[in-house]
Write a protein that binds this DNA or RNA. Structure first.
Lengths: 173, 173
DNA sequence: GCCGCGTGCTTGACGTGACAACTGACTGCG
DNA sequence: CGCAGTCAGTTGTCACGTCAAGCACGCGGC
């Protein structure tokens, strides 16, 4: 089994990738909590809503976009609702479905939090990279995702062809 | 503030990086739990011990290498000890520090789990990449870490010059 | 040699996510 | 119609991580 161990270059790449994967969420979370009192996940969820038509998505659609399980999202949305940042209402066309809409207050929060977030992303990730490396990173990410996210669940975001999946009927076309 | 928004290439790279960062831990964790009944973090900790002299490290040294807080590590080590995979004993030279040593049973677990782990890493990350991309990934990781881990806490691993930091006196030179 | 302070680690309480079981609503088939 | 099967979400329970104290040890001053 020793036959397919990692060679030096792979090992170096792996150690760095693991370190990034471990540390980056903490960096994003810390900045977000300090600046807006939000989890990075909460921010992501609200950002998804802010870009959706009517600022509304059904729970399962939002879950897909944020790579969350439905139970997790249910808890998070409840908390956000208690803070008045989102509102929930049953879908008129399908009684099983719950739609989530970003309130004006929630939208304001996101707009206020976005610059700081982008600033952090720039500083942590893109500033130390050359333009060429940014493109390489995109391609590498694409390749890895083809393995760990074969269904392209999170790819829905940047693949317009599939963008309609999971969008609420009421808010969609 | 709109001035420094992300451009298209950066946005594409960012979305993919976020997706990888979100999904990869789950992939590693799931495989590890199924194959060895271990968390990926527990595996990492035990792997660090297995490579240390005497298979022993002090708590704080292990915490540094695994990017864990001391309380977290304390809990994890206690659980591993209850399973007989590691043992704790006070350092004879400094009563404050506790050394952690990987037991033979723990070492056997790691050895048994390693091939499956490597297999997963290969399949998820390296197989879909060209040799060139692996080297690019290493350099990109290095650059990002210079920002999010400026002290090189996790870099101790592959920087022999600093490897002595945090190593237990008894086990070190 | 004892007292005060900094260090290394542990412990307990709390918040958050995962898994499983459950409720309510649509669908298909008689 | 009425009932079985499935689907969308919610709710409870448990495990894990984090934060804030707490404790034990070592090291300085007097």
């Amino acid at each position: 089994m020793e036959a397919e161990w990692l060679d030096d270059v792979e090992m170096a790449a792996w150690l760095r990738l693991v370190a990034v994967v471990e540390l980056l969420p903490g960096v994003l979370d810390t900045q977000m909590r300090a600046a807006a009192g939000l989890t990075h996940f909460e921010y992501q969820a609200m950002a998804m809503l802010s870009e959706a038509p009517e600022r509304t998505l059904r729970m399962s659609g939002l879950a897909t976009r944020t790579n969350a399980t439905l139970p997790r999202l249910s808890h998070v949305v409840r908390r956000l609702q208690e803070r008045g940042l989102v509102e929930r209402f049953p879908c008129p066309e399908d009684g099983r479905v719950t739609n989530v809409r970003l309130t004006d207050a929630g939208f304001a929060e996101i707009v206020a939090a976005a610059p700081g977030h982008v600033e952090t992303v720039r500083h942590s990730v893109f500033d130390p990279l050359t333009r060429e490396q940014v493109a390489q990173l995109r391609d590498i990410g694409e390749a890895i995702l083809s393995r760990i996210d074969p269904d392209g669940r999170m790819t829905v975001l940047y693949d317009p062809e599939r963008a309609s999946e999971g969008r609420t009927q009421a808010a969609g076309e």
